[in-house]
Amino acid sequence: MDPFQFIVERYNYWIFIVLMMIGLYTVIARGNLVKKIIGLNIFQTSVFIYYISIGKIAGGTAPIYLPGDMYRRMDHGEGHGGDGHGGDDHGGDGHGAEEVHGVEHGEEKSHGDAEALHAGDANASNALYAGGGEEAGHAPAADLHGGAANVASGEADHGGATQGGDAHGADAYGAAADFVEPIYSNPLPHVLILTAIVVGIATTAVGLALAVRIREAYGTIEEDELEDADNIAEFGVADPRERADAQSAPAGGGQAPQVSGTRGRGAKLAGDRLGERLGRGAGSENGGGAA
């Protein structure tokens, strides 16, 4: 296969991967805590895009009813209405629209809005079913498209047959024959991503709130300076490896030593400093992982 085509055909995945890597790089490489959060956000957003792109069906529209769309479908609704509404043909889930339609249709035949609404509903339930069912992942576009087209033409035939010479029915037949039922993209990933967006916003809010608190406690949100401040509090120097040289010098740095369990008495015994330092050695890996 042509490598260029290979790349272009999958452009949505490339966007996902590029954004993901930008986000991940920002999280890892940036020392500023706020920038890290923004990187995290980009990383999460890339995943949202990935989810939405897998829910996309070729030629499908967003799973939303548009007024113009309903208008277009009115013709089809009429043709379909000829067979005494036949809501069951759709295997409808018993939604209220059908009954509303039944009444209205009986009263004024030319009114197609309710029918259009019904057609839309049935379509939505089809799409939803396919989305949840097994097919969606494998070959959603082809299946759904074929299925929908069949339904449309089948109904058109039916409408034409029962309506017979009725001019109105014939019109509907003509209109429905070349009418392709709108195909909707799979709405399930959209719903999932709405949830994930809420989670992402909550995470960002908590992260930024923590950054604010860190700034209050340390006076900085740069990771290097935070690490230095912790080391100064603990060892008296910014870099524990320099400790041997600086041992004679008093702990400068202006940061009040803050030892675990303060309440004015947290002073640790000198002998335990060594262990703490070893602990720090492992702990600095920790910082390295996030840095």
Binding site: L24, V27, L33, K36, I37, L40, F43, Q44, T203, V206, G207, L210, A211, R213, I214, A217, Y218, L226, D230, Q258, V259, S260, G261, T262, R263, N286, G287, G289, A290
Partner: peptide
């Protein structure tokens, strides 16, 4: 409140947990 390092610990947890 007792030890400000809890804040950076929580922050690191947040970043890695979210990843």
């Amino acid at each position: 409140r007792l030890d400000r390092r809890a804040l950076t610990a929580s922050y690191n947890y947040l970043v890695m947990g979210t990843l």
